[in-house]
């Protein structure tokens, strides 16, 4: 059995509606509506994998996370994490689990973060020596040394996120959930966070599941993604294969100094004139970008050139559109 195995997970909510019409009976009548938050989702994750979960808001991402962490029980289906069913063996399950919510802190707001880490030592019943070793290690890796004795509320967002990560990894969990970990962070903090996560994954074999709206995170961290939409699993596979499927057109715009010879246009490239510059569009899946570039350079003395790749966010938007989400 794989490290993490989800089999036909479904989650249905019954929502009560406030009756708006229908005479006096609306005082006691209860109208209900069934909402399918998750339908028939199966997948498995091997130990040490780094998997991204993609999907628009309301697609069921957080329901999946809540089921796998044991916060909720599914309406149907089952999942095993390291052989355990999360909602049946809650305490044993969460002992080996780390969770970071980008928008919610798990540390204590008003006390130095070191105090929070000490409390976590007792929460997870860690050996003081092992805890100390791990804390030192994380302090180095995440560069926490400068503000271990500062209350959380005085930290910047980037520092706070690093502290959160440390807090969720002190007990060396085998499985780490990250929910929007880079939300609101600046570019430098994002890069640091990503490289830390990659190292943690490589060095300890920590399995990481990541939900994010930030495609750069996905590209930097995950080779495999799950795409959820309307509570269903729409895609489970390599990230680049997914991107290639929706990656259609590159647009190259160039202008020349003096005369130019535009003969021998490579096959599959469309050429248009726009004022004194030329616009070339092509599908990178069919035509190699390098080939187009060398052709452009050979044409004459280049004055300026821009290459526009379709941006990943646009790709995802198109993908959601096509999957009719």
């Amino acid at each position: 059995m794989a490290f993490l195995e989800a089999e036909r997970l479904s989650k249905t909510y019954v929502r009560r509606l406030k009756p708006t019409s229908g005479g006096p009976s609306r005082l006691w009548r209860r109208d209900t509506q069934r909402i399918f938050a998750l339908q028939d989702v199966s997948f498995s994750v091997e130990k040490g994998e780094l998997v991204g979960i993609l999907g628009p808001n309301g697609a069921g991402k957080s329901t999946v996370v809540k089921l796998l962490t044991g916060i909720l029980t599914p309406t149907e289906g089952v999942c095993h994490v390291d052989g355990r069913i999360p909602w049946q063996e809650r305490r044993e399950h969460v002992r080996h689990l780390g969770v970071v919510f980008g928008q919610r802190t798990q540390l204590w707001w008003d006390v130095p973060i070191l105090d929070s880490f000490e409390l976590l030592r007792d929460v997870y019943n860690l050996e003081p020596a092992a805890w100390k070793r791990r804390l030192d290690e994380m302090t180095d890796a995440l560069d926490l040394g400068g503000f271990l004795r500062t209350p959380l509320r005085q930290l910047s967002l980037g520092q706070r996120m690093r502290a959160e990560l440390c807090g969720s990894l002190l007990h060396e969990p085998a499985l780490l959930f990250l929910d929007e970990p880079t939300i609101g962070l600046d570019a430098v903090s994002k890069l640091k966070l990503r490289s830390f996560l990659r190292e943690e994954n490589a060095a300890r074999g920590t399995t990481i599941l990541l939900t994010t709206h930030d495609m750069e995170d996905m590209l930097a961290l995950c080779r495999r993604v799950l795409v959820l939409g309307h509570g269903r699993l729409l895609y489970d596979g390599a990230l680049d294969a997914l991107l290639r499927r929706y990656d259609t057109v590159h647009v190259l715009r160039c202008a020349y100094e003096g005369p130019c010879d535009l003969s021998g246009l490579p096959q599959g490239v469309a050429l248009e004139r726009d004022g004194d510059s030329y616009v070339l569009s092509f599908a990178p899946a069919e035509v190699e970008t390098g080939k187009v570039l060398s052709w452009v350079l050979a044409c004459g003395r280049l004055r300026e050139m821009t290459l526009k790749e379709q941006n990943v966010d646009q790709l995802i938007a198109r993908m959601y559109q096509e999957m009719s989400l």
């Binding site: 204590w108 008003d110 006390v111 929070s116 000490e118 409390l119 007792d122 929460v123 019943n125 209350p151």
Partner: peptide, 18 residues
């Protein structure tokens, strides 16, 4: 038990901030 004691002390620390 150690956890409970520690957690409560933490609460007092937080309260002492204000």
């Amino acid at each position: 038990m150690r956890y409970l004691y520690h957690a409560m002390r933490m609460q007092l620390k937080c309260a002492a901030q204000y």
